[in-house]
Amino acid sequence: MAQAFTAAVVQMVSGSEVAMNLASAGRLIEQAAQAGARLVALPENFALLGRREQDKLAVAEPDGTGPIQDFLAEMAQRHGIYLVGGTIPLRGADPQRVRAACLLHGPDGRRLARYDKIHLFDVDVSESAGSGERYRESASIEAGDQVVTVDTELGCIGLAVCYDLRFPELFRVLLAKGAEILILPSAFTETTGAAHWHLLCRARAVENLCYLLAPGQGGLHDNGRRTYGHSLIAGPWGELRAECTESGEGVACADLDLAALQRLRARFPAVQHRKL
């Protein structure tokens, strides 16, 4: 197992054209790889953030094949990296909805894991009915029901997506399954991000004594939605290791040291002291 390595989170402002989004993602992945990153994570909806929620149905792919999945495999193999493909729309059982699938590819391009977003963002952000801050992901997305970790040479990786961040019990299950590195592709709204993003990311990292990589969308999108950005890497003591502090595209890199993580867990065994 690689005890120390560089990881990167990619921040994007994805729009309604898949080809343009993939071109942007490819350029940012290359930038991260050139900076020495062996693990690179893309944000939620990196390949499409359409004008309407139903737009994702038109580009949804069957599991295992399609231009977006082929892109992830090619990028991982080309750069010899572990690549987390944010979320992409994969076809599910309901033809009117998709699965929001987070995919992990290894350095040889082979897919190692798939996690389907469990918690769907069905909320009214604002008290004002006319503000437009209303979201119903369940209208176009089928929820997943499987918690996913995968052992790699870099460490044990646990996958979650965006709104999952608000459900600490999910992360406890990931921890119980061996997670050392939590990866959370996101597209937090500007409103909820300003209120809760840093607080929740740091809490999930420190309470589980894990590294947390949180790549996000960060800017104004074709549908008029504004996302918070601040893509970050948090350490197991809750410290910020790296962050994209500006809106717009960006890459933030930090070194992850799994030997140091295990030493911290040994001298501060909070996760072993749980009673419930």
Score class of each variant (00 low, 15 high):
E30Y: 00
C102N: 11
L104I: 10
A73C: 09
P215L: 06
S140T: 15
A33R: 07
L154Y: 03
L175S: 10
P67V: 12
E190Y: 11
D108Q: 13
F121N: 10
H105K: 01
N45P: 00
D145W: 11
L175P: 00
S131A: 10
I141S: 02
S231A: 14
V13M: 12
R99V: 10
V9P: 12
L104A: 03
L57V: 04
A270R: 13
I181T: 03
A76E: 12
G229V: 08
T65P: 01
C162T: 11
Q217G: 13
C102E: 05
A93P: 13
V10D: 01
L49E: 04
E61C: 05
A214S: 13
Q11L: 11
V123N: 06
L159R: 04
L42Q: 06
F71C: 05
S131C: 06
Q69A: 10
T245L: 14
A100E: 12
L209D: 12
N21T: 12
I181N: 09
G80L: 09
C210N: 14
G64P: 00
E44K: 06
C210R: 11
A60I: 03
A160V: 07
E169Q: 06
K275V: 13
G193T: 10
A25S: 13
D116L: 04
Y228E: 14
L103Y: 02
E17Y: 07
I157M: 12
V18P: 15
P185L: 04
G248Y: 07
M1R: 08
A23T: 09
P62I: 05
D122C: 05
A37C: 02
P168L: 06
I141C: 06
A7V: 02
A194R: 13
G144W: 01
F71K: 02
V84Y: 02
E239D: 14
C102L: 01
A160C: 02
G158V: 02
L165W: 00
R204I: 15
A187W: 01
L212R: 07
H105W: 08
Q31N: 06
A113R: 05
